[in-house]
Design a protein around this nucleic acid. Structure first.
Length: 594
RNA sequence: GGACCCGUAGCUCAGCUGGAUAGAGCGCUGCCCUCCGAAGGCAGAGGUCGAAGGUUCGAAUCCUUUCGGGUCCGCCA
């Protein structure tokens, strides 16, 4: 494999290519796909070397050779490579690889030249990926329930971008259903109050279909704004007029006001979407009808009667014919309704329009970040996407489990602003944006999480937010304290003096950053970045602590400018990778701890 | 009744898409600060990976069954 030796790259990918080349030469009769499962990874035990490959074991069967024998031959071939110091068969057929020191150390200057772009990958091939996340109903301020999805989605989008995908960050505004209509009624009430109505809240509520919802105070400014713009024209004499025109007008203005607020909340969290798509606009533009017509044309829509759910039958269940999409043809459990009994579209039908629109805009892969309560919705949407794209556009859904907010172990419930729940703003005000973002990524998204307001701001080893930030601050501190003559052009510093196991371990960790990015992106698991940074910080702190016991291991050595420069290069490289990782997470690196 | 997610050390969680003797932090036990980098550091104990089968050279990881927890199951989004 050829690669530009002046550009930083994933050395694991380089070695993997070499392993495959060697295997091909040893086994010329094997087909290419025989090597698909060949891996080159860091060994579990560092004493095994820098890398290990399962290549011999993976192809041994097809090659009709005992794995250890093939491993021995592979090791001999690998040992001849210029960057390899030693390659030896081990265990059931692994080959352990020890890299030449200059090759390993040589990664540091490449990394420094790449800067925060280190770890950028071409794996995505600039494939157009649409990542939709948050998509909270525009019916009120964002609350903590939206927070995890917002952070996970944003970090995932950043991650995919870094991995070489052409990413669109998207927000789908659910501004067409019964919920936003209920919102319009609620805003109407605040408007009536603003212009001075004789109605009581209960009297008004009695006139509203389904009763008055969304009673939080956050709609008061909307009522005031409606008054400022329309006077009492929307309710002459303070009496409500429930015409479609009036309600639609109020609804549009209220949704717009809520979206302003939601965008502000998101901005406070550092989340900025590229595209906001309106459900209502898609329906009006005929996108939704067209998408469903497409399904009809494919013979995937029919009138039918669904079986009641087994076990727990709803009280008011009545079998009735419905317009159904044949999602079972694509792996769903039952076919899904597209129309409500009043003839209007179900949420699912409109969401089909949403996904059709993404496909029509040329998206090649779709990612949805949803709350766990939407788990039952995954198969039907994947079915619809498959049908619409003839299987060419995959839809991945990342489900985020519930976050329980606690303080000192006690559940926290009430919001200062909105009464019934904790707003996103409350959370950010309490612990800060960076702590929120980092902490939301310290668990797999499909695992439940407890968010402890006390622990996430604690300055201790057990708080990963602090631990990683501290490592970066220490790096920066060292670089500030060093003589500026020593910190110039660190990418040309001779590094031969880096010999301590802790130093080499840190370098190995740094070289694992590109493959970490690729693997995390492939798995759609941004939490892996947080864990990698925790490991990297740990390696760095270990090295720092060694300097306490052994003064010769301190970074700045007054009498040793050359080894000082080598270490400063390593420190700068560490800071660079931490920043690179934090950038994916959307967390600001700090220069000092305060 | 069914679908999806989770179950790994006393606790909170990783485990790089099937690899070597299953890891980390906290907690626990024992050491280590006159001073030069202690918002700590070093070492140790602690596991039938919920259970039982299966697939294969090899399983915490894949399949089946089962037990516990969560989410959800036509006109909410």
């Amino acid at each position: 494999m050829s690669h530009d030796p002046t550009v930083a790259y994933d050395i694991f990918a380089v070695l993997r290519a070499e392993v495959v080349t060697c295997l091909r030469r040893l086994l010329p009769d094997l087909a290419d796909d025989a090597f698909a499962r060949v891996l080159v990874e860091p060994p579990r035990d560092a004493s095994h070397g820098d890398m290990a490959t399962n290549g011999a074991m993976v192809v041994a069967k097809l090659a009709k050779m005992p794995p250890p024998k093939l491993a021995a031959e592979l090791a001999a071939a690998l040992a001849a490579l210029p960057m390899v110091a030693e390659a030896a068969p081990a265990g059931p057929g692994f080959v352990n690889i020890r890299l030449k020191e200059e090759f390993l150390l040589g990664q540091v200057p490449l990394l420094l030249r790449a800067g925060e772009a280190y770890g950028d990958s071409t794996a995505g091939g600039q494939v157009r990926v649409n990542v939709e996340y948050v998509s909270a109903n525009p019916t009120g301020p964002m609350h903590v329930g939206h927070c995890r999805g917002a952070v996970v989605g944003d970090a995932l989008a950043n991650l995919l971008h870094k991995a070489g995908y052409a990413v669109t960050k998207e927000y789908y505004i659910n501004d067409a259903g019964a919920q936003v209509r209920a919102l319009a009624y609620a805003a109407y009430w605040r408007y009536l109050q603003a212009i001075g109505t004789s109605l009581t809240e209960d009297e008004y509520s009695a006139q509203v279909p389904g009763g008055l919802q969304y009673r939080g105070e956050y709609l008061i400014p909307v009522g005031e704004a409606l008054k400022a713009e329309h006077g009492d024209a929307l309710a002459p004499g303070g009496q409500p007029v429930f015409t479609e025109a009036t309600l639609a007008l109020i609804q549009a203005q209220t949704v717009a006001a809520m979206m302003v607020e939601i965008r502000e909340d998101l901005a406070a969290l550092g989340v900025v979407h590229d595209v906001f798509i309106s459900e209502l606009e898609l329906v009006k533009a005929g996108v939704t009808d067209k998408a469903i017509a497409e399904l009809v044309a494919k013979g995937l829509v029919y009138e039918g009667v669904l079986e009641p759910p087994k076990g727990k039958t709803p009280e008011d269940w009545e079998p009735r014919p419905q317009t159904l999409f044949s999602s079972t043809a694509f792996g769903d459990d039952v076919d899904r309704p597209l129309r409500k009994s009043d003839g209007s579209n179900t949420y699912f039908a409109n969401d089909i329009g949403n996904h059709a629109d993404k496909i029509a805009r040329g998206m090649q892969q779709l990612v949805q970040v949803w709350g766990a309560d939407h788990g039952g919705y995954v198969k039907r949407m994947q079915a619809a996407t498959k049908a619409l794209s003839n299987g060419s556009v995959p839809l991945d859904v990342v489900l985020c489990q519930i976050v329980k907010v606690v303080k000192d172990g006690e559940p926290v419930r009430m919001s200062k602003r909105a009464g019934s729940y904790i707003t996103l703003r409350d959370l950010i005000d309490e612990v800060g944006r960076d702590a929120v973002r980092f902490t939301m990524l310290t668990r797999k998204s499909d695992a439940q999480m407890e968010f402890d307001l006390t622990k996430v701001v604690e300055q201790s080893r057990e708080n990963p937010v602090f631990y990683v930030q501290y490592a970066h601050a220490r790096c920066r501190s060292v670089l500030r304290q060093a003589d500026s003559a020593l910190t110039a052009d660190l990418d040309s510093a001779p590094l031969g003096s880096l010999q301590d196991p802790a130093e080499l371990a840190l370098i190995r960790r740094l070289t694992a950053w590109p493959r970490t990015v690729e693997a995390a992106a492939a798995a759609r698991e941004p939490h892996r970045i947080a864990f990698y940074l925790g490991d990297l910080a740990s390696d760095f702190h270990i090295l720092w602590n060694r300097g306490r016991e052994d003064a010769t291991l301190r970074f700045i050595q007054a009498e040793q400018p050359e080894s000082t420069r080598a270490r400063l290069a390593l420190v700068a490289a560490t800071a660079t990778v931490i920043r690179s990782g934090l950038a994916v997470m959307g967390v600001t690196p700090v220069e000092e701890m305060r």
